[in-house]
Design a protein around this nucleic acid. Sequence first.
DNA 1: TGATATAGTACCCGCCCCTTATTATACTTA
DNA 2: TAAGTATAATAAGGGGCGGGTACTATATCA
Lengths: 160, 160
Amino acid sequence: MSRIWPGKFVLSFLFMHSKFGFLSYEISHVIRQRFNKAAEPIGFTHAQWRALVHLSENENCRQIDLAETLEIKPITLARQIDLLEDSGLVRRNKDNEDRRAYRLELMPKAQPIMQKLWKIADAVEAEVLGTLTRQEQKQMTALLERIKTGLSTKPVDKKD
Amino acid sequence: MSRIWPGKFVLSFLFMHSKFGFLSYEISHVIRQRFNKAAEPIGFTHAQWRALVHLSENENCRQIDLAETLEIKPITLARQIDLLEDSGLVRRNKDNEDRRAYRLELMPKAQPIMQKLWKIADAVEAEVLGTLTRQEQKQMTALLERIKTGLSTKPVDKKD
DNA sequence: TGATATAGTACCCGCCCCTTATTATACTTA
DNA sequence: TAAGTATAATAAGGGGCGGGTACTATATCA
């Protein structure tokens, strides 16, 4: 029993488990941290930021649709919308055709704030992605896009 | 004022902000969710899992070193170690050379559990990465590795 | 009309991480 | 050796983000 390996369990790694999960988590974690720190003076978090951006890409949508886009539960989104509404960046408009639902409207006040937040987001990403060439950055973003697309077409194990 | 764009703020995207931050977050979020759901019967979370793996790669390290590896604060790690110690997977050994510090030891009991968790992690990743070819998976992991390496060599803005 | 489904939310909980302050120990320096 | 500083770990307490369940109001279907 040769004990040339530094740890008892290192053998597990001879089978080359992928570390994609850890890597993507750690990197996105760092991005979130840095964004939150930089955006704290403006008073917004990464989660609210994410909601804002996805909302701006799909304005006047219902909460449930936005929640699905964000891959979070409606109740979780409701909290973020509460905050954004308190800040005056978003308004809940009663849906004409379905009185249960709201349509989310981005208020004009959101524009300058989103510009600031984009600046922060871009700066953080530039810092994080700095070690890659532009070519590599594009490549990786494309790969991630494909993964994400694959996720939505191949749900976990919905029973229906 | 041509209003051919679906939303008022879509113009922001003409400048092609990178969505790497969102993408990495969303994907890692899905991975965590699926891992946690699958690992719940065994009684461990993704955070504990992460600690276990990094510990197995660097056995007998001190908490502060492991915390740095994990990119979390020592107090945050201490909680995870509490749980892992309660489960009998990890033991805190007093450091001979520094009586303030502990050396973290993986207990034999950890091995079978880690095997199960690796199975879950591998399955989740296989599912998530399924849309990419093996070549592309390697490519992307390599790129992420480089990003992560770049992160540690270029800290946020430590003042020292 | 009654049964079922859906949009949103209130309430409560868990996980993960943090800030600040504290204790015990180590190191440094005078 | 004594004082001051730095460090490893922890206690206390809190916040952000997310979920489960159950509820209300409305919609839809039979």
